[in-house]
Simulated assay, not measured.
Amino acid sequence: MIAPRSWLPTPVLSILLLVVWLLLVRSYAFGQFVLGGSLAILIPLLTHRFWDARPLIGKPFMLLRFIFRVLGDIITANFEVAYLIANPWRKLKPHFIEYPLMLEERFTITLLASTISLTPGTVSANLRMDGKSLLIHALNVDDEEALINQIRERYERPLKEIYEC
């Protein structure tokens, strides 16, 4: 007997692929289920060896708190950016910042860069080749060190704790 994980390495992704396939073809015919199911099994089976292993979540409740923090920051930053753009007499101070990373795992660095980019007013522009720093563009920077400390305390430290890096 074949172990389920050997022929279905990512069951959640397979289900998602099947659902997306059925939504794309807008048909629930038996043939579409067969074709979509085949693709949902074959695609992850052929590509899973190219994926990086994700670190295990050590503190799931802290992850939930982190998600709510990011959502709150996105809402707040939207209002701040709208205020900055709507007031033409206010002089913006855009700036590129070299952010030194404490994280070492590629997965958690990607999460941090994505979180920074999701928050309006900041974009993670580049990960240095050595993997030790991110280049971040911010729309309005009064104090570079304060922004670095804010990112470190609000996003990087919680990610480090959640994934126990």
Rank of each mutant, 00 (worst) to 15 (best):
R65S: 15
R65W: 12
R65N: 09
R69D: 14
V70A: 10
L71M: 15
G72W: 15
G72Y: 10
D73L: 14
D73C: 08
D73P: 03
I74D: 13
I75F: 13
N78T: 11
N78P: 13
F79D: 12
F79K: 10
E80K: 09
E80S: 10
V81R: 07
Y83I: 04
Y83D: 05
I85W: 09
N87Q: 10
N87L: 09
P88E: 12
P88R: 13
W89V: 07
R90F: 11
R90C: 03
R90Q: 14
K91A: 01
K91Q: 13
L92M: 12
L92W: 11
K93E: 05
K93N: 12
P94D: 03
P94G: 12
H95R: 11
F96T: 06
L101F: 00
L101K: 02
M102S: 11
L103K: 01
E104M: 02
E105R: 09
R106I: 00
R106C: 00
F107W: 02
I109E: 00
L112V: 01
A113L: 01
S114H: 13
T115A: 14
I116A: 01
I116T: 03
L118Y: 09
L118T: 03
T119E: 04
T119P: 04
P120C: 09
S124I: 00
S124E: 01
A125G: 07
N126C: 02
M129S: 13
M129G: 06
D130R: 09
K132A: 12
S133T: 12
S133F: 03
L135N: 05
I136L: 11
I136G: 05
H137D: 02
H137W: 03
H137P: 02
A138G: 08
L139H: 06
L139P: 03
N140I: 07
V141I: 07
D142L: 06
E144M: 08
E145P: 00
A146I: 02
L147W: 10
L147T: 08
I148P: 00
N149S: 12
Q150E: 11
Q150S: 14
R152N: 08
R154C: 08
Y155W: 05
E156S: 10
R157M: 14
R157Y: 15
P158Q: 12
P158Y: 05
